[in-house]
Design a protein around this nucleic acid. Sequence first.
DNA 1: CAGTCGATTCACT
DNA 2: GTGAATCGACTGA
Length: 213
Amino acid sequence: MIAAPDRTPLTRDFFDRPVLDVAPDLLGRLLVRTTPAGPVELRLTEVEAYDGANDPGSHAYRGRTARNGVMFGPPGHVYVYFTYGMWHCMNLVCGPVGRAGGVLLRAGEVTAGADGARRRRLSARNDRELAKGPARLATALDVDRSLDGTDACGPAGSPVTVLSGTPVVPDQVRSGPRTGVSGDGGVHPWRFWIANDPTVSPYRPHAPRRRST
DNA sequence: CAGTCGATTCACT
DNA sequence: GTGAATCGACTGA
């Protein structure tokens, strides 16, 4: 007999902590994305921490810009960025105003609303691939820049909410270098995932783009 | 204002 | 394993 996951929303206080504390604590939590077409629910299995101005790997490293402004705001909000000309990635803002911490949501297991996710993720060969990777996760959840700045601590039925779920015991948390992060930002073991979970994305070191001409 | 490249994914070989 | 796709943000002149 397995206890049902706790569906209590996480409070803003949960996110108002150092990002390195919040990130592993998000594993096993439930992300609920309510789209116009209906809700999709995900159990978070892989995340990465980005620690604002201290962190060369973070978008906030060189200060506040139009793109990353939300990360400098209050915790518990959604930061969405657009990259490689075609993908979106989703973060949850952590730490106090001005600290610019963020947790990149890298992978999860779709636990409800899989039909909608499958429609948006036609290249997925099975359900484990629906949200295996940050841009895949955002696609499965129908997340784009229009959600940037959304409060994830709002009432049920809000565009994005995070529920308590079933936190992972420390025993089952693994950590390692962040995926695809260039330069000095790649040295920190700030990627966290659930041991042996089949929805976790493969590790890939940063690969500089080859020169065209 | 032009050049560079990205917290990636997909199709192919 | 390799290369293409695709565009906006950021950089430095």
